[in-house]
Amino acid sequence: MSYRYRRREELSLPSVAFTLFLSVAVPLAMILTLGQQLGQVLQVYGVLTSLSWLALYFFKRDWLEFKSVSLLTAVVNIAVMLLSGSFAAQLAAQKSPFVIVPLTLSSVVPIVEVNFVTITLAFMVGWAEEMLYGGVLYGTLQKTGIWGKLITAAVFAFMHIKAYTSVSPFDPAFLHDPRAYLLLAPFITRFVQCYLIDYEKGIVGVALGHGLGDALLMIRAG
């Protein structure tokens, strides 16, 4: 093993502790504390977050390092999330007589009450989604270039369909459902997030931005 390879794979103790805390310790604590209140889907998310962290630790360890550009990617990510959410909501509103607001946690919990617990959950879901979709899925597809970004974005948007609309995507009526426009938000956001991961050469800043962005959207929706 070359010296250069070992240097690239080094991971600082603070980065290990920080990402391990958010990816394993916090989800486990919430599962043990809240139990059935979380719901089965959120409990599964907690487990998947831990498994995603382990996968990254063994196969893309340097992605878990907090880098000098991590704060920048976090801020850009938050801005992209807010802008894409507003853009999608405006498009949906133009096609619907009702006010449509994409609420965070919607990929796993359709309707939530905005309070401290759900804001915390919003952050954790954002972090978890980044570990899973940005870390594991895009990490696997990264070498395919733009196709990997498009596939990752499409999968991420697909996972929000059930929460955003009750119409099946295989139903012709889906194309006429105003709520379908909301799917542009996760698609655009995930597509840009893939580029941010490339720029950061890691996932910590993007994951922080995703979690904070979800929390801010939750607060704004409340």
Rank of each mutant, 00 (worst) to 15 (best):
residue 59 F to I: 07
residue 130 E to R: 03
residue 185 A to K: 05
residue 149 K to W: 09
residue 218 M to I: 11
residue 85 G to Y: 05
residue 54 L to T: 11
residue 136 V to E: 08
residue 140 T to W: 15
residue 126 G to F: 02
residue 165 T to S: 09
residue 1 M to E: 10
residue 157 A to S: 07
residue 177 D to H: 03
residue 138 Y to F: 14
residue 99 V to W: 13
residue 184 L to I: 10
residue 18 F to L: 14
residue 156 F to D: 08
residue 144 T to G: 01
residue 117 V to S: 04
residue 42 L to G: 00
residue 30 M to K: 02
residue 82 L to R: 08
residue 167 V to N: 06
residue 4 R to L: 14
residue 119 I to A: 10
residue 74 A to Q: 06
residue 209 G to N: 06
residue 16 V to Y: 14
residue 101 V to G: 00
residue 65 E to F: 08
residue 91 L to K: 08
residue 63 W to I: 08
residue 34 L to E: 08
residue 113 E to N: 13
residue 186 P to A: 03
residue 101 V to A: 12
residue 120 T to G: 15
residue 206 V to P: 04
residue 83 L to A: 15
residue 215 A to R: 04
residue 96 S to H: 05
residue 169 P to S: 08
residue 73 T to W: 02
residue 216 L to Y: 10
residue 182 L to G: 07
residue 138 Y to E: 03
residue 206 V to S: 05
residue 94 Q to L: 12
residue 73 T to I: 02
residue 165 T to M: 02
residue 133 Y to C: 10
residue 100 I to A: 11
residue 81 M to S: 02
residue 96 S to R: 09
residue 141 L to R: 09
residue 66 F to T: 11
residue 27 P to Q: 06
residue 83 L to Y: 04
residue 57 Y to C: 11
residue 147 W to E: 00
residue 11 L to G: 02
residue 201 K to N: 14
residue 146 I to V: 13
residue 222 G to D: 07
residue 10 E to M: 12
residue 156 F to R: 06
residue 206 V to H: 06
residue 65 E to H: 13
residue 31 I to M: 12
residue 114 V to I: 13
residue 6 R to T: 10
residue 36 Q to W: 12
residue 95 K to P: 01
residue 207 A to Y: 01
residue 147 W to P: 01
residue 201 K to V: 08
residue 138 Y to W: 11
residue 75 V to I: 14
residue 201 K to W: 11
residue 94 Q to H: 09
residue 177 D to G: 00
residue 143 K to Y: 03
